[in-house]
Design a protein around this nucleic acid. Sequence first.
DNA 1: AATGAATGAGGGTTCATTCAT
DNA 2: TATGAATGAACCCTCATTCAT
Lengths: 201, 201, 201, 201
Amino acid sequence: MATRSLNSNRPADKYSSILNAAIKVFARNGFFNSKVADVAREAGVADGTVYLYFKNKDDILTSIFDEKMDLVINRLSEDFSKIDDPRDKLRHLIRSHLTWLGRDRNLAIVFQVELRQSTKFMEQFSTTKVAEYFGLIRQAIEDGQRRGIFRKSFNSKLATKILFGAIDEMVTNWILSPKRYDLASTAETVIDLFFNGVVEK
Amino acid sequence: MATRSLNSNRPADKYSSILNAAIKVFARNGFFNSKVADVAREAGVADGTVYLYFKNKDDILTSIFDEKMDLVINRLSEDFSKIDDPRDKLRHLIRSHLTWLGRDRNLAIVFQVELRQSTKFMEQFSTTKVAEYFGLIRQAIEDGQRRGIFRKSFNSKLATKILFGAIDEMVTNWILSPKRYDLASTAETVIDLFFNGVVEK
Amino acid sequence: MATRSLNSNRPADKYSSILNAAIKVFARNGFFNSKVADVAREAGVADGTVYLYFKNKDDILTSIFDEKMDLVINRLSEDFSKIDDPRDKLRHLIRSHLTWLGRDRNLAIVFQVELRQSTKFMEQFSTTKVAEYFGLIRQAIEDGQRRGIFRKSFNSKLATKILFGAIDEMVTNWILSPKRYDLASTAETVIDLFFNGVVEK
Amino acid sequence: MATRSLNSNRPADKYSSILNAAIKVFARNGFFNSKVADVAREAGVADGTVYLYFKNKDDILTSIFDEKMDLVINRLSEDFSKIDDPRDKLRHLIRSHLTWLGRDRNLAIVFQVELRQSTKFMEQFSTTKVAEYFGLIRQAIEDGQRRGIFRKSFNSKLATKILFGAIDEMVTNWILSPKRYDLASTAETVIDLFFNGVVEK
DNA sequence: AATGAATGAGGGTTCATTCAT
DNA sequence: TATGAATGAACCCTCATTCAT
């Protein structure tokens, strides 16, 4: 631990340096307009060094996604194991998602915009990590349906997408808005509407 | 009229030819991987001709957005003027949106993936046309709140984004899915959940 | 004559319109940076019309040279036939040259800069018209030598080039200088030095 | 030293390789008709390598001028410091100029033709280096006037241009002439006429 | 003769990637 | 491991020229 912080250039750190530099650079200029050399400069390494840690430019982008999603999914899975009520699970997921990205605008930009460069990327993400994330949502929903907490009359897969789409749009709007409001504070409305709908009973 | 359709290459059509060719090409290869020459070939015109109708490659992409959004917004505005019940308005909008893009997979790909290349594009779209589209949704929601049909306890702007995000995610999932299901058929679940929420009463 | 001025769009005039437009445009932007379309617009004709009067873009440039040089050479030849003293001939040529270009800065720019684009042009000019112009100078010099007015100890061809170079440099310096002095007023020094040299006797 | 000449491709030489290749290529095809790829091939480097040493194609051309003019001016300044008589200074300058370019036809072509592509280039040159060169001539002339060696009755600035123009025209005529005579041998006539003029005394 | 829409060849420049050191 | 000079493929856009009207 002590030694970790003493040598910030230790190989193990270069990977992270480059990854974090990439998030900053991609958020600033966009993935296609960012040069590998820009990322290298921001990370304080030589151009060639990037290729010791990443296969190519695309790999940097997908690695950002993979690394960050792993963190999120692992944390969320663990949290979920401690929460019983499916409503609480969804509340927690919505709040976590919006809090997480609301704290790191650069990362949010990369997730909402840069990662959606092409169907190639998108398809790649949709399988694997995103499927896992969707799985967490869906399990909570289906659990709720089984327990009679949620209605059984809707398709749980579609409900999963609807909730994800709602959350996702919160983030997208936030990064595109010139206003600097608190993203996390939008969570309660998402929760309320997903649970209760808009119609007056 | 008859003669119009007989000659698809008359000057007035070049603009449309190129635009439609671009939708096909961008959907197939992605915007950044598509060459202007590809679009020209698909449209059956010379490379240089593209520049008689479009300022540059970016302009082709934004023109696709502008042209198509104008159509949608105009049609929807007109339809809305004939619908009284805010619930019916939203039902109509949701069904129309999903039917429209469900009928043109290439256009859907361009709208869901290619148009979100960069914050530059996104910001540009968010103002103008997207704002108009959001406006249509929001007016229906606020009208419903005023009339007591929808609950007054939620923020209408956030509800607008939530609904849009839900619809948008339907489309994105549809184009990314290897399965070829009917996009429009997902509309009813979106309507049901947005209106009633997931919670059992 | 009267009819000439009544119809400025008469075919015969288009040639001149385009030529004069080209002088203006080439002087402003340089030959390579000028588009045929620029010349056409300046001349008030369609792009294609230029090609009814000129073989191609190069031909416009060489035509400027040919037309203007013909005028100059013819006038000068005629003037020379009325002047006996070789010194007076050279005085007249020097003054005429500098007065002529001093009155038309655009033409001067085309002659001093744009016409020297390439050895291809230069070689083409050196034969033909320039040779004629050099011939006028040289004849006066050799006549002066024959008559014992000028020294016989120098090579008349070289003296011709030296005089031409001196005059030419006056013009070049004038168009490049930000100062707007009278080019013709430099003639007297050229005359004095070419005749008498710099050395104090 | 021995190793220097054995390895003409070592990094430090790439700049010179490209510059010399450019002189050859520009002289052969003209600046506008030469491709950067031609220069690269002639220099034995990749296209992109050119841009590691030069900002763009124009920069190659201006660098040729700057590099060569620096050499000339420095050498001439040093020589001048060892020569007292202004007449000898001018004799030396005229002979050097004509000997220098007479030995390198390609360089002469670039200097007399290609560097005069546009007023943009010309103006750029006229300030800076050319001004220095003119300064050397002018100082010798004014020194001669001060000492009573040269007449005081002419404007030294104009005399400077006249001499430069005369020398310059020698070179231009030489490169355009199909005859392959010795350029340096024309120096004596330039000297004689500039000093003594053409008129018999 | 005049038009101007259409053509399509052409090239300067960028930048992801490699590899000798 | 790290470097960064070198590579060379790739492409948008311009514009001289043509030709159907």
